[in-house]
Design a protein around this nucleic acid. Sequence first.
DNA 1: TGTCTATGTTGACATCCGTCGATGTCTGGT
DNA 2: ACCAGACATCGACGGATGTCAACATAGACA
Lengths: 119, 119
Amino acid sequence: MSKSVLELTPVEAVACCSPVTSEPLSAEAADRIVPLVKAIADPVRLRLVSLVASHADGEACVCDLNDAFDLSQPTISHHLKLLHESGILDREKRGVWVYYRVNAGALRDLAALLGGVTA
Amino acid sequence: MSKSVLELTPVEAVACCSPVTSEPLSAEAADRIVPLVKAIADPVRLRLVSLVASHADGEACVCDLNDAFDLSQPTISHHLKLLHESGILDREKRGVWVYYRVNAGALRDLAALLGGVTA
DNA sequence: TGTCTATGTTGACATCCGTCGATGTCTGGT
DNA sequence: ACCAGACATCGACGGATGTCAACATAGACA
């Protein structure tokens, strides 16, 4: 059973659409794609994604991430929540720690959408 | 003579950097990249880019763009200014009309930065 | 059970940002 | 010279967003 368009996550919305440069984007499509772009349109969140992606084993726990910024722990938690909800970061709780890992497909689809052409 | 890092436009900043997923992004690099991402992190601006890119001859005048939205002319002008200043859209005035065209390199570099790997 | 540590949630605040109406600045035509 | 149309700028308003301190929750271990 396929999902209604309105139920699509931002990641699914990006994956389903034509490149931005090939045909005009509908208002609805834009509204579904933008949350994913907004998610990385912040210096802290962009660095978080980069930190997680380049971390050993492709995952990092919150404690590691907190130390990388001069920001309060709730603020980092807030940004991680946004990244998780938009589908860019996956969460896994192991014991007391929570590990985040990037959803490579999300970034790849977004890149494809912007680049217009992809392999 | 090469430019100081602080003089780099967002587009140049994106073009010079490693993919987000290969190594941690410095705070400075993030601050230089984010303006470009922010520029397309709005449904109206994303559609504007898409409209211009997919328009005949790869360019569109403001009059065409205004008609595509239920927004005031100053609002569209404001968004176009942002897209132009961030380096995503190029401007050319011909007579009474102003034509915008996408800077394909900017989108391609941004896509490469996000995708991590590119051809 | 109780306490310590890791992480998320809430509420408040300041700032940023999208939007508009009014106005300014060009350019071309009469 | 004047007017009309295309586009930009300005000032203001309301809503969205990043940040923090305080508090809540949940797991590990004694």
